[in-house]
Amino acid sequence: PPQTPIRAAMNSIQQLRGELTSVSDKPSSSLIVYFKNCTVDPSDEITSRVEQLGQVFSQKFAQAVGQRCEGLGKKRFTLGVQLYYKVMESILKSEEKRLSVQNFSKLLNNATFHTSLLACALEVVMATYFGSCVKNGGDESPETDLRFPWILDIFHLHAFDFYKVIESFIKAEPTLKHDMIEHLGRCEQKIMESLAWKTDSPLFELLRQSREEGLGEQAEPPAT
């Protein structure tokens, strides 16, 4: 039978949970092999960062939605961590194939990469649950505050750094549903249209570097 919007949203939630039931909220054996192959083993940093961001997430979630929902926040965060490790493993496998490299020490010791990847995984979880609120007309729902870019604010993450993981995240997670990919696309647009141009954005440094590097090259003649 045709699905009501609420049923469709509930299905998304069940599907997300179903996808992740067999995924642990700890690094898998394949991930541990990648960690061990690093010049500097990032395992402890990764574990302590997840713990620390988990406390931030639960606290901010409870502040936004209500203290009695702290447990709910923890559950959402755990789902996010499961998805984070799942996508990280998939990204590393595809990078290994693309670059014929097994030592990802620089990437796996890059705190911004991990925070962005976990933020993206949590954004997918939040949007999946928020989808159920919006579909039943719950615009007034306290979860409205948790919409993007809430996750960037609580993790003090630059939008441009979050933007860098989106495409790889979508490529690495083929089970992402169409409406979720669309949602991430909208996040990307929002970043490019406004969030990435905030005064402290790393985008400006990148533009400055490329301009300096570009000085050696001839600028393209203007199109007639």
């Binding site: 990204i91 595809s94 990078e95 693309r98 670059l99 990802f104 620089k106 990437l107 890059n110 911004t112 990469f113 860098k164 993981v165 495409e167 790889s168 979508i170 490529k171 992402l176 169409h178 990919i181 669309e182 991430l184 696309g185």
Partner: peptide, 21 residues
């Protein structure tokens, strides 16, 4: 996927985006 516009070139990936290539 159909509606997402992939922009990375063949030789680009997350390692390059985070200057870890």
């Amino acid at each position: 996927s159909r509606d997402y516009h992939f922009g990375l070139e063949e030789h680009e990936g997350i390692s390059e985006l985070f200057d870890c290539d």
